[in-house]
């Protein structure tokens, strides 16, 4: 399994996103004139090597889900490129796109909404298998469905049931089985465990890790939960208001955060251990709306280090150390302390 822990980059990353931008127009008036834009995603770039996991983390409204959808062209990006194995898929025609659609799958947050309640699991899986382009015989297709359901830790009996007969964790397993039915190589996991209880979440996360190892899958893991992201990803991107604020390898970003937002986000997580109950620094204010973005650095009005420069100029996502990028003018000077709990280990 290619590792990105040391920040080694292969010649051509499997997935590469370049300056992705998605602005949703706001229309108003009698003739539906465009009166403004919701700037959901702004010039976001990152890459994922084959077999790796990139974690996207951010609060609601930061644009993480929009990125996932743009990458699959479930919504068309306004501009930018999504390169899969070196091919830009944003301009492909419908027919040309088909093999990529099979290869790239998404697992949604809500397993209660993503499965058709009137379809048995068998029929849902067979539909996906038939969509994989091959034309397997009925027996072969069934054998594959059986193999898939066993792959995710369920058994043949479950094939004949309907979605309502399953618990949340089991449904999410079924969603994974269905995503794998097309021999996919790249999965976008959009908050796959945020509907699940902790004990079940652990089961699903373990399953995803195991599958990645066995099938050499590449993941884009989207979550608002930093701990889950830390557990799953090799590399993490922190988003705020449609902008990438910091990108680094997991170990680095947690032990040496360089962007004040990343730091604040980590400070905000309640730690399940009263012994390290610390006096936290609280980030004041709310996330501003994405229609009227703050000028300059989008984080400046909540940042305690902000200066006039932050209000006027937009910081670029610059390389601060090898493999560590942060969009802050003062990233190197702030000397943000890693969390106390991190020093403990």
């Amino acid at each position: 399994m290619p590792s990105v822990h040391g920040g080694i980059k292969t010649a051509q990353p499997f997935i590469k996103v370049v300056n992705l931008k998605k602005w949703f127009p706001i229309t108003g008036g009698l003739f539906g004139r465009t009166v403004g834009y919701v700037r959901a995603v702004n010039e976001v770039s990152f890459e994922i090597p084959k077999g790796g996991t990139f974690g996207l983390v951010g609060e609601s409204g930061s644009g993480k889900t929009t990125i996932g959808r743009c990458m699959l062209r479930l919504i068309e990006p306004t501009s930018g490129q999504v390169l899969v194995d070196g091919v830009d898929i944003t301009n492909l025609k419908r027919k040309q796109m088909a093999p990529y659609r099979r290869m790239m799958q998404i697992i949604f947050q809500d397993p209660y909404a993503s499965l058709d309640p009137r379809q048995t699991i068998k029929s849902a899986l067979l539909e996906a298998i038939r969509a994989s382009g091959e034309k397997p015989s009925a027996t072969d297709a069934f054998a594959r469905a059986k193999k898939l359901i066993e792959l995710v830790g369920l058994n043949e009996d479950h094939l004949y049931r309907f979605p309502h007969e399953f618990s949340g964790g089991q449904r999410q397993r079924i969603a994974v089985a269905r995503a794998l039915a097309t021999n996919s190589e790249f999965l976008i996991l959009d908050e796959p465990t945020s509907f699940l209880d902790v004990s079940v979440q652990a089961q699903v996360l373990n399953l995803l890790k195991q599958l990645q190892k066995d099938l050499n899958l590449t993941y884009l893991f989207i979550s608002h939960n930093l701990s889950v992201i830390a557990h799953m990803s090799d590399r993490v991107g922190v988003m705020y208001l449609g902008k990438m604020m910091e990108v680094a390898n997991t170990q680095t970003i947690y032990s040496n955060p360089m962007h004040p937002y990343t730091h604040a986000l980590m400070e905000a997580i309640p730690v399940p251990d009263p012994a390290i109950r610390h006096q936290r620094e609280i980030l004041h204010g709310d996330v501003p709306g994405v229609v009227n973005l703050p000028s300059g650095c989008v984080f400046h009005d909540r940042c305690k280090y902000a200066t006039q420069k932050c209000k006027d100029e937009i910081p670029g996502l610059d390389v601060q150390a090898p493999g560590h990028e942060a969009a802050c003018f003062y990233a190197k000077d702030l000397n943000l302390q890693p969390l106390a709990l991190y020093q403990k280990s």
Partner: peptide, 16 residues
């Protein structure tokens, strides 16, 4: 079963 920032085990322990 709770994933933590401090540790990165390969697998989490879950309750079956």
């Amino acid at each position: 079963a709770v994933p933590r920032l401090t540790e990165r085990p390969t697998m989490l322990e879950s309750i079956p």
